[in-house]
Design a binder for these strands. Structure first.
Length: 260
DNA sequence: AAGCTCACCAACCGCAATATA
DNA sequence: GTATATTGCGGTTGGTGAGCT
């Protein structure tokens, strides 16, 4: 069964004078002939000049994504993948811009590739990182509370000697105001609260807790900023971070630097 | 063997930018 | 300067086929 016949059976066929759905080999041939004769562009003339019942938009898309002779067929190579990762980290969903850096690949192809290979990972990563962040915050809180308890005990011992209730109350008030876990102010801080991690992981977590380094002042921490396109390919922050960096050849710097 | 799920990809749609009359 | 046409882009949809249960 031909695509055309099948398309019509599937409910495509001719809508408002224009054919829609999958292209037939005959339509492809007509379009290629047209481009050979008239060159690219003026797509709305195709219907009239080539005898195609397709609108200009559809013709252009077919040519750009499928018929262009310079298109590269076959799987995206690891090298191309690393370029996609790098450029997506830099530019976000600017597929046509990314495609210009990959000769023979179309924006549609790259977009589809990214969506099927990385979009899901991004969601999973976000979820995992969120859990990790919660765990770290909880751990920080416990550590902080333990420190507080130790301090309070020391203070109480001192105060027992002094028997000065005023001092006890003001001391406790002061503690109450500092119950919230602190944000690590430096990578050294992160090394203190997360000693098990590598330097890379600590660096990543530091930027995760404080927002990306290049987030504009006043913009503040934003979940989207972190995960919408700059850090998505970190599968599992603890487990696979090093591997993600090594295999994708995407530097931590580029990953931690959102769109510009 | 049949049904289900999921990855893949071609094609469509809406909108914005640009070109042309 | 403005209206209209064309082009380009990014998001989304839906069909296909392979693998799994």
């Amino acid at each position: 069964m031909s695509w055309g016949v099948m398309g019509e059976q599937l409910g495509w066929g001719i809508i408002e004078g224009w054919r829609k759905g999958p292209w037939t080999t005959e339509e492809d041939r007509l379009l290629v002939e047209y481009v050979k004769l008239h060159g690219e562009g003026r797509w709305n003339s195709v219907a009239r000049l080539a005898g195609l019942k397709r609108n200009g938009k559809s013709c252009r898309l077919r040519w750009v994504n499928y018929l262009r002779p310079d298109l590269k067929r076959g799987q995206i190579t690891p090298h191309e993948e690393s370029i996609i990762l790098e450029l997506h980290a830099r530019w976000g969903n600017r597929w046509s811009k990314i495609a210009r850096s990959l000769p023979g690949r179309t924006d549609n192809e790259i977009k589809n590739y990214w969506r099927t290979h990385f979009k899901k990972k991004a969601i999973v990563s976000s979820d995992k990182a969120g859990k990790l962040r919660s765990r770290l915050l909880a751990r920080q809180q416990i550590q902080f509370q333990q420190q507080q308890q130790q301090q309070q005990q020391q203070q109480l011992q001192q105060l027992q000697n002094q028997v000065d209730m005023k001092k006890i109350m003001s001391s406790l008030d002061e503690s109450d105001n500092r119950v919230a876990p602190f944000l690590p102010q430096s990578r050294q801080d992160m090394a203190t609260v997360y000693p098990a991690g590598t330097a890379e992981e600590q660096g990543f977590l530091y930027s995760m807790f404080n927002g990306c380094a290049s987030v504009a002042p006043g913009e503040g921490f934003n979940e989207d900023t972190l995960w919408d396109g700059s850090l998505w390919n970190l599968d599992d922050v603890h487990g696979n971070l090093s591997m993600a960096c090594a295999t994708s050849k995407v530097s931590m710097h580029s990953l931690a630097t959102p769109l510009y």
